[in-house]
Design a protein around this nucleic acid. Structure first.
Lengths: 133, 133
DNA sequence: CTACAACTTAGAGTATGCTCTAAGTCAAGC
DNA sequence: GCTTGACTTAGAGCATACTCTAAGTTGTAG
């Protein structure tokens, strides 16, 4: 299933996922990533599935999910298909919080825009394009 | 301009702004809030303008602006109207980053939704509404 | 008068999420 | 044989943003 070409070093994974090698080891240590397979020399070798999982973790992080919640999710994932309903619930809750977060940002954006308009007016009044004597 | 009714205690401000009294003192200490006026007994007394500023700070924080950037903004604000163009620039940059953040969240939401749909299907197949022999 | 609540300060402590260091192993190239 | 570079581990350190503690003051109520 995985030939030698599919098995990447930690540095390669860092380059392709955007996580640092430190962070990759950290994620593995805290259980976000399952124990990665090793080459004969004890060096980690990541499979393509591992990359897929790490990319998904990155998406979860980008939604603002905390490390702790991701640990729960990763734990459920490892328990197999019978935890699908729980993971589904987590994702639905995540969707909800992300939607709320977007709405909040849009509200705050309005306020920022209002302030920009206000300041823009004052600034343009102070320094008209061409001074008229 | 400010009568006794307009001058709130730190606890009242905490209640109305949602910040803790600790955070209010912390914000003042690091220059996010200018030195608040005191009653005869050295206790802080916040004016309505102070409340307005604190509420604005809360909006900036909610957009994800860092404390450090807010310190810069607060510093410019204290320098008066001649810093309006700089503050305008900061707000425009903020608008941009918030718009990007919203777009990113919406992208990630798509992925979460895709996963929800997928899991939903699997789960509903595993446990049909009524088992048919 | 004393108890209490609300405040004050300086400074220490905490949670989160990394990020780095030190010391060591190992394979490949010169 | 030796250097180089990529990896390994355990554990320390760091940036951010609070959050809390200890010790003290003050004004009011009983």
């Amino acid at each position: 299933m995985n030939n030698e070409h599919d098995r990447l070093t930690i540095q390669q994974v860092a380059d392709t996922t955007g996580l640092s090698v430190h962070t990759l080891r950290y994620y593995e240590r805290i259980g976000l990533i399952h124990p990665i397979g090793r080459a004969e020399n004890t060096h980690r070798r990541y499979s393509l599935e591992d990359i897929g999982w790490i990319n998904f973790l990155n998406k979860l992080r980008a939604t603002g999910m905390s490390i702790q919640e991701m640990q729960v999710y990763a734990g459920l994932q490892r328990l197999g298909d019978e935890t699908l309903p729980e993971r589904l619930e987590m994702l639905k809750r995540l969707r909800h919080t992300v939607e709320e977060r977007i709405a909040e940002l849009q509200e705050n954006l309005k306020i920022v825009n209002y302030k920009i308009d206000l300041y823009q007016k004052i600034v343009s009044e102070q320094t008209p394009p061409i001074a008229v004597p």
